[in-house]
Simulated assay, not measured.
Amino acid sequence: MEKPILFNTAMVQAIIEGKKIVTRRLIKNKYPNADIRFFENKYGKRLVHMQNDAPEPVKLENGWTRHSLIAMEEINKPYQVGDILYVRETWCDTSKDLKEDSELEIGDCKYIFKVDDLGEKHPIVDIDIKRWRPSIHMPKEAARVFLRVISIRAERLQEIQDSDCLKEGIREYSKAGNVIKYAVNEEQFHWFDMPRNPLEAFKILWNTTVKKDAYKEYGFEANPWVWVIEFKKVDKE
């Protein structure tokens, strides 16, 4: 099945360059009186919303428990292994979004993207673009990056390790004296501001995706539940 997935410009560039092969997506708690947790029985292990003020389970004649009937709801995975994800990214429609005095020779090119196929930037393109459209509004027909889901699992955000951060698109940079630092890209920080380990760089990256009024609930320090989605870039069929 084909489904959309949104990435910002820096992450699209990392995917194109093969630097990003995993993404973590927030699992929001739907209910104020429930916790997210794993529930396991003879049918397997699954992630659920579990009511935290529920009475003790009561066995019913049909084999169910009152707990499972009124106090638990399974959380469905947003994607399945084998799904094809088409990436929505920052884009423009050349028939509508170029400046009137633009000298770009676009030919049959209907769409232009903030990041080109080599992950490079073209200043002249930015000059001639009247407006960039947000990724959420990109139609499927404009998609040029496709990903196949290899695996998906749920875990707490702080379970991430340094090696996982590198798979998330965090890059390693070094300078004279073998000083190594980490960031999504060099433009994100001045050299002296860049973290010295991948995890710190990922913390900063994660928190840039969370609205300030939601830090307490979904910021890195809140340790929310997330879907860990591993993918592989594939050709458009």
Rank of each mutant, 00 (worst) to 15 (best):
E168Q: 08
D83Y: 02
M194N: 04
F202W: 14
D35H: 04
W64Y: 12
K30E: 08
R24Y: 08
A142C: 09
D193W: 15
D83V: 02
T94R: 10
V210R: 02
W91D: 03
Y111I: 06
G119D: 02
D108Q: 06
K42D: 09
D93F: 09
N29F: 00
I112P: 01
V149P: 00
N33Q: 10
N185P: 01
I160D: 00
I21Y: 06
K216E: 03
I106E: 03
V184A: 07
N76D: 15
M138H: 11
K99S: 02
E186T: 09
A71Q: 04
D35C: 01
W191I: 10
T208Q: 12
K114E: 08
L60C: 05
L118C: 13
R171S: 11
I75N: 00
Y31P: 00
Y173T: 05
K211T: 01
W132S: 07
Y86K: 09
A14M: 05
R171N: 12
I36M: 03
Y218I: 00
F202E: 07
W64F: 10
E172W: 05
L104G: 06
T90V: 15
N52E: 04
Q158Y: 04
Y31S: 07
E200M: 13
N197F: 04
P134R: 10
Y111V: 03
R131F: 03
A143C: 05
P78W: 11
I15N: 07
G107W: 02
W91E: 05
L199W: 02
K59I: 06
V48R: 03
A10Q: 13
A34M: 06
K130L: 13
A54F: 11
T90C: 11
Y79S: 03
K203C: 09
V234E: 14
V125E: 07
N197S: 05
R133K: 03
N33K: 13
K175G: 05
V48C: 08
E73Y: 11
I84F: 05
R46H: 10
P195D: 14
R66E: 15
K59T: 02
S68W: 15
E141G: 01
P198Y: 08
K42E: 15
H190K: 14
K20P: 04
I84P: 00
I36Q: 02
P195L: 13
R156K: 15
V22E: 13
F202C: 03
L85K: 14
K175T: 10
V125A: 08
D193I: 10
N76P: 13
A143F: 05
V87W: 11
G63R: 07
K211R: 15
V81I: 14
V234R: 11
L147T: 03
A143P: 01
T90Q: 06
K42S: 11
I170G: 00
W91Q: 06
L157C: 07
K211Q: 06
I127F: 13
T9C: 11
F146R: 10
V234Y: 12
G63P: 02
P55H: 01
E141S: 14
K114H: 14
G119S: 04
Q51D: 14
K20T: 09
L85E: 12
T209N: 07
K211N: 06
K233D: 04
R131V: 12
M194Y: 04
V210Q: 01
L157S: 06
K96L: 13
V87P: 06
T65K: 12
